[in-house]
Every structure is written in C-alpha cells, then in structure tokens.
Design a protein around this nucleic acid. Structure first.
Lengths: 193, 193
DNA sequence: CATGTTTTGGACCAATTAGTCCATAATAAT
DNA sequence: ATTATTATGGACTAATTGGTCCAAAACATG
C-alpha cells in the first residue's frame, strides 16, 4: 500500500509546494493537493501521512531548492556586491511581473502559520537562516573585494538584507509597482556603501 | 432585525480585527467571530452581512486606528528622526515580547489574502499608503530639521522605511530574537544618515 | 397590561473538510 | 497461468464550514 510503482516523490512535493505557495496552508484543500500531486487519496495518505506532514515536507523541499539555487549564485565569479544587487533586482522584477505576486514561500509561511505551528516555525526559521548565512558569506566576500563597506558588521548586514528582501515582498504584494519597489531596493542597497 | 439595542459597533469590529489578526482570515471561523464580537449569529448576519464583509470592515477599522495613532505620534514635538527611530524600536520590542508575534495586521493580510482578494488588496494598499505618507511627512520634516540626510529623495526613503518595517515583522515572526531584530533596525536606520 | 418592535437561540441546510477503508484493478514475480 | 504485491476509485465518516430562517423571548412604548 503506497505510492505508484515508479513515482517521483520530489516532483510531487514540488507540486504540493506550488499549491501551498499560491493558496496558503489553510486555503489549500486535500483535493487541491491530490490534484496537483497526481496521486489518489489513498496513495496520498499511505505515502505522506497527512496534509500537515506534506506541508512540512514542502517547506523542507523549498529549503533544498533555495540551497541549491543559492550555492549556484554564490559560485558565480562576479563581485559579491553585484550578486547581492541582482538578488534584489530579481525580487523586484519577479514581484512586478504578471502572476509573480506569490512572493516568497518562506515569507508566506512565516506570516500565515509560524505563530500557531511550532513545527513549521522551526523549519521556516531554518530557511531564513540559510538565506542569512548565504548573504553573510556574500557580504564578507564583498568586504574583502572592496565592494562593501568593510567597517560594518557583516552579520548585522546579512540580517538586515534578509529582512529587507522580505519587506520588499510584502509591500510588493499589496502594491506591485515597479517604481516603488525599485526605490525600496535601491535605497536598501545604499547601506552597503 | 439588527444588532442589540445599544451596541458598540466599532468595539465589535475591533474584536473581529483582533481575531483575524491572531488567526488569519481562513483560519477564523464564524463561531470565533460571533464569540469575540459578542453577538448572535442572526445579529451578525443582519448587521454585517458576511464573514468577508466583516473582514473588509476590520481592515478599514485598522486603518482608522493607525491613522489616529500615527497623527498622535507625528504631532509630538520631538525631532522627526527620533520619532522614526522609536517606531522601529517599538516594532522590535513588540515582536520580541511575550505574545507579540502577531506582527502587523496589514502585513498579515497582505501576505495571506492580497493575491486572491482584490477588494481586500485595495484596502490593504490604502493602509500601506497611509504608513508611507506618514513616514514621508516625517522624513521631510527630519530633513528640514537636519536629522536626516537632506539630499536623499524623501519619497524613496518613505517607501524604504515602510518596507523595512514590514520586513522586520516577517523575520521577527520566524525568529523573534531581540539581537537579530535590533541589528536589522539599527542597520536600516543608517540610511537616514 | 397590551402592543409593537428588536433580538436571539437554535434548528436547519448544503457543501466541504480531513481522513479511513476496502473491494477491485493493475502490475510483477513465479 | 497463478499467485502475490501494489495502487486506486470511491464509498463512507464525523465534524465543521458559512449561511438562512423563524418562533419565541426580551424589550420599549403606549
């Protein structure tokens, strides 16, 4: 009793994540999930246990994908400052493009469930930590390279940048205006000078 | 057919707002609402129409309360820069104190419903606009007073500060650590130098 | 006290929720 | 071809959802 004989579990989790991302946890129903994951109700429960279990797994899945993306970006040999800037630019353009207002999955989860779902909160915290650590490494590198003010505390900068990116997503949801968001991104990055 | 003979509508909306604030829109049930608002199901529907109508009214109510608070703060004769700083300080301490992790109601609403609820999205956008305009006025005053860099675009700064405050709330939800959040707030405010 | 107006509890509704279970169907192994 | 395994559709719960409705209770007014 389990999932189809050959069945791409990570792809299913990816689909589940997409649904949670678009609709939020509460607003996502079982039928939404089994529809997106393309398995039967029975297989769903046999394989994943419960809606909440899938939710946690989706958060974990998200963390894996950003870890991959992030290490790809950090590996580029462009100056670290440029990489950080392009992170903000990409956030702005994603938020302003058609259908891009889903924002950041972690961000959405943090706001919707962190207060009432300790298990999820822990995973989400871990996700933010990944972002922060990535930015920390980039900031330190930028300081060595000379693109970022060397006297500033890199940990504080990393925390600040993480928070700034999240702020951008939130205001972008209510008002996805390119000009506004560019103002925010540009101003936020002046801290690195 | 209506509400109780003497009935404080704004107080009821305030209670409704508290519930939506704590639990989110989807996770709030009718019984939650009529419990908090202290009226019967019949009176609820007679007076307010529907859950969604109450939700919109609660957002409006929130906007009224922040407008009031905000004009009180702006009226203080302390330097504008100090007022902005205390806004961030208060955000940090609220997020880190026991039970303060609800964050900002507008922020929560933006993340949970803006994408799928145009009517709410419009009200939420208006709420952010109030914040932005308030900060804009403070920034301009700060620039005149000399506490804030006069060469920077006050509109961009206001947008940036609004976004920063929201970012603070989001990361605070997942990780309500005073040190982290202080780092964020302190760093964010250096933009005003 | 009687009349007219408000307000309410709670019965009721249809839809939906997350979740269980099993007989059947599909597949694989022998 | 037979057997053993695996997966599925869908019937089935029990609870809850938002919402309607009305007879009775509470109240105010005369």
């Amino acid at each position: 009793m389990a999932r189809p004989r050959e069945f791409d579990t990570t792809e299913a989790l990816n689909q589940a994540m997409q649904v949670f991302w678009s609709k939020g946890y509460e607003a996502t129903s079982l039928s939404d999930l089994i529809g997106a994951m393309k398995l039967s109700k029975s297989s769903f429960y046999d394989t994943f246990g419960s809606k909440h279990d899938v939710f946690l797994a989706a958060i974990e899945h998200y963390k894996k994908t950003i870890t991959a993306q992030v290490s790809a970006v950090s590996g580029l040999d462009a100056p670290a400052r440029k990489l950080i800037e392009s992170l903000f630019e990409r956030a702005v353009s994603r938020m302003t493009e058609e259908g891009g207002q889903r924002g950041c999955f972690l961000n959405n989860c943090a706001v919707e469930v962190a207060l009432h779902d300790p298990a999820a909160a822990k995973l989400i915290g871990g996700g933010f930590a990944i972002m922060e650590d990535t930015l920390f490494a980039l900031v330190e590198r930028g300081q060595r390279e000379g693109g970022i003010a060397p006297d500033k505390d890199p940990r504080a900068l990393a925390r600040y940048l993480t928070s700034s990116l999240n702020g951008l997503m939130v205001v972008g949801k209510a008002n996805p205006d390119p000009e506004s968001l560019s103002d925010v991104a540009r101003t936020a990055l002046t801290v690195l000078d």
